[in-house]
Design a binder for these strands. Structure first.
Lengths: 111, 111
DNA sequence: ACGCATATTACGCCTACCGAGGTATCTTCT
DNA sequence: AGAAGATACCTCGGTAGGCGTAATATGCGT
């Protein structure tokens, strides 16, 4: 079975769904997507990017220099989208089951 | 902000919703709850139990000897239930957002 | 007698994340 | 001009949780 995908990794892939981005843009995008609940750390980000590239879930999408600042773009691959979908389904089934159990427990208390 | 709860930890708390259990029973219960998708490792289990007890999310619920075998029971606390509920809500919002983005991306491709 | 299920504990490794540091350019404010 | 802050990247050591395996012990079925 596949390993669980951690939260920062999940959000990185999610942020790339709307198009290729460079590292720094991913940090602000993840903050937005998580309603500021998660601050993507730089160490986490570049580590995750290397790992995801090795796994084929993201790929380099060119680099440019914008007003003197270097930008490296990455994009999500088809495998990356599939992995996100699989993880999403996994979260969903977990969430549904725990919600059912929590509800049943509350009913049990009430009766 | 609170840290993410890892999958094995999540399932341990979830398995305890239906009542106090001892370690070994948790292994079979987690396998059942996850449709055999997750095999809770012994090292993970007893490590998690120690940690969760220190955090006050589970508590010792007596121990007995059944047919010569030692059993230590643990039960989930109110804080434990609350933590599970919070994590469940977190998963849900993540899942909803990523599903929306995945759908939108597919629509974008179709048009 | 042997293997299997039950039941707990201990120990070291691995991996992703965290935190803090460094480099460099451009803009804005004083 | 100088300082501060936003933009943009990289690296490295530490930590936490999970993984894997071994050790220990009893009871049951073949």
């Amino acid at each position: 079975m596949n390993k669980e995908m951690r939260e920062p990794t999940f959000f990185v892939l999610m942020a790339l769904l709307s198009g290729p981005k460079h590292g720094y843009a991913l940090i602000t995008e993840v903050a937005f997507l998580s309603d500021n609940a998660l601050t993507l750390q730089v160490g986490t980000l570049y580590g995750a990017l290397d790992r995801l590239q090795k796994e084929g879930l993201v790929s380099q999408s060119g680099s440019e220099i914008v007003s003197g600042r270097h930008r490296r773009y990455v994009e999500i691959t088809e495998d990356g989208v599939n992995a996100l979908e699989a993880e999403s389904a996994r979260l969903r089934s977990r969430e549904l089951r725990v919600t059912a159990m929590l509800t049943q427990r509350r009913i049990g208390f009430a009766s």
